[in-house]
Design a protein around this nucleic acid. Structure first.
Lengths: 204, 204
DNA sequence: ACATTTGTTAACCAAATGGTTAAACTAAAT
DNA sequence: ATTTAGTTTAACCATTTGGTTAACAAATGT
């Protein structure tokens, strides 16, 4: 049997690095802290990943590869726009609840270093909007949904699903709710967001 | 005549610090870089603001005080929900186009340090949702809009307006558009977003 | 059994970084 | 003219930080 990720050193490092990088970002993270969390000597980080930058990139690519398939699902399957929105919203919010730091981490680090996007963009499996756009146009032509540009609809879907997690502290302060109440709000959004979007675009 | 902000040293420091902090974050910013940008000696930063932390807080509060009034407008004036959404969306997107780093900066640093929110929350002028929530309930009862919780509608409005700026590099990569095309997308959103929200909530 | 490769550690290093100090400069007050 | 208070600078300092090294241990192959 092959060793699980937290049994071999490389995996321990990745786990620890993920945790530290995701909560403190590249600049705020300390190699020593990662080593401590992994329960190993700092030199091991460099033995396995050579530099902070490369360790970070390993963590980042890993994180991104969790996010991408979720998006491809909505973009490339064959269900109707309405079904896609329902499925995506529910699945995606469930997914982020399990990985709350993830969207913020990715967005934050992409803002810090635009070059990252290039390193991932040519990966196969990088989300592509073409099919989705065509489908939106078709359904609009058939009168199933109101006319809207595929890009704008896509941005709106992402925004409504992701933003509340990215801006959690801000929204919590404005709405003046506890952590528990916020969690409930997010739970409700699994269906509310889909209804909201569908109301916005369906033809009456 | 009183000296303008970039004529006196303190103002120069604040301008430089704002620029550096907003693009690199607290952890990524270097005091020397701020001093260089302000064209002064590093010791001056400490002379005027004592520490990096305090300089950062000055910049942060400043940034936040730009954002808050925009929100209060939608929350506390007396127009209908529909008008509020229209006005807010158009104004807010125009505002962010002028200060593109701002939302990301605030969100990012609030995620890094939850304590910040407490330091600002008791400021007068901190946005409060109560009136808005009441109004949403009223219009829902009158049948003007579909039933929706005030919090959820507020989150949706923020999400649709702010997210595209916060996640710009990510969305640009997914939608595969140039900087110029992205700018145009944002320009279009000034009206599109309002229509989208209103379609989602208005009673038919 | 022995040699070689792989994994691990403690000690170390140079550079960077936030912060301090003491002296010098400036301009207004006496 | 001299004092005084505020402003500015260059040099300095202690600590932190990413990264290296050399020695040691544990597998692995022969």
């Amino acid at each position: 049997m092959t060793k699980t990720r937290d049994e071999n050193t490389e995996g321990q490092i990745l786990n620890a690095a993920k945790s530290i990088f995701q909560s403190k970002g590249m600049d705020g993270a300390r190699m020593q802290e990662i080593a401590d969390k992994a329960g190993i000597n700092k030199a091991m980080l460099h033995y396995y990943f050579r530099s902070k930058q490369l360790l970070f990139e390993a963590v980042f690519k890993n994180a991104f590869s969790l996010l991408a398939p979720q998006l491809n699902a909505i973009l490339n399957d064959d269900s109707t726009i309405e079904d896609k929105i329902k499925n995506f919203t529910s699945n995606y919010i469930s997914f982020i609840i399990k990985h709350p730091y993830l969207p913020n981490f990715i967005i934050q680090e992409l803002n810090r270093n635009q070059d990252f996007i290039l390193k991932i963009k040519d990966n196969k499996g990088f989300p592509n909007l073409e099919k989705f756009k065509k489908q939106v146009d078709e359904e609009a032509n058939k009168g199933i949904i109101k006319p809207i540009s595929g890009e704008q609809l896509f941005i709106n879907i992402l925004a409504l699903n992701i933003f509340p997690f990215v801006a959690k502290p801000l929204v919590m302060a404005f709405a003046n709710v506890s952590d528990k109440a916020y969690k409930q709000l997010m739970e409700n959004r699994k269906t509310e967001v889909a209804n909201f979007i569908i109301n916005a675009i369906k033809h009456t």
